[in-house]
Amino acid sequence: MKVLVPVKRVVDYSVRVRVKADGSGIDLNGVKMSMNPFDEIALEEAIRLREKGQVDDVTALSIGPRTVQDTLRAALAMGADKAVHIELPADTPIDSLAVAKLLDAIVREDGYSLVLLGKQAIDTDLGGTGPMLAGLLRWPQASFASELTLIDTHLRVVTETDSGLRTLELPLPAVVSADLRLNTPRYASLPNIMKARSRPITVRTPAELGVDVTPRLRQRAVSPPPARAKTAIRVESAADLVRSLRAEGALK
């Protein structure tokens, strides 16, 4: 059984992003990039299934310019068996739907039984790719998984909803998106990072896969949230706190 894990290269969670002066987007110059944390969780889960002997092959896939190969190397170092890079020219914007279509094409071509992906990418926070892919493939899906068990040809998935936990059973093939609590991803060891550097990466293009990636959405403007009025102050005592709150008009 083969599992596909799409991994996205995003701005690292620890970085405070800055909007470009002209409002055209986020300033990515010199900014630290890493694997989308939810994708890392999805990958960890796939590797654990392989370690349990329930899965034979874990393929990591990333879409974007050459730099996404860094993310694929990180995936190989963690334990992915193969890596596929769908190459786009630098600075090509791409919508969730186009991503879903590329994944759809790859899944049909290479015959995967499970697509495990992150519930959303932390850069755009859209969360559209998984559901769209399930729709295109006409596969069952489970979103926001916090527990996953593979029983023969069935999956039992505990998902997180606003009203509590929901347990779903779904037949394979299926699409599952990973939530934060699914697992804690492993660290890659130095010897594995070293080996990953010389492993092959299969490079494909949207044209080869017959997918038109022309964006249907246009980003009009990006602006930072309104600045906080004042910096925090440290008060010395409860009385001070009350006085400050009064001064700010928060207390009468």
């Binding site: 492993r186 060891s189 130095l190």
Partner: peptide
């Protein structure tokens, strides 16, 4: 010796722990 990755505050290894290696 390189540092361990993934220990709790009290030193116990966490899931996903990667021990340091000797270079």
């Amino acid at each position: 010796l390189t540092g361990d990755l993934g220990r709790h505050r009290d030193g116990r290894p966490k899931p996903g722990f990667a021990p340091g290696v000797a270079i």
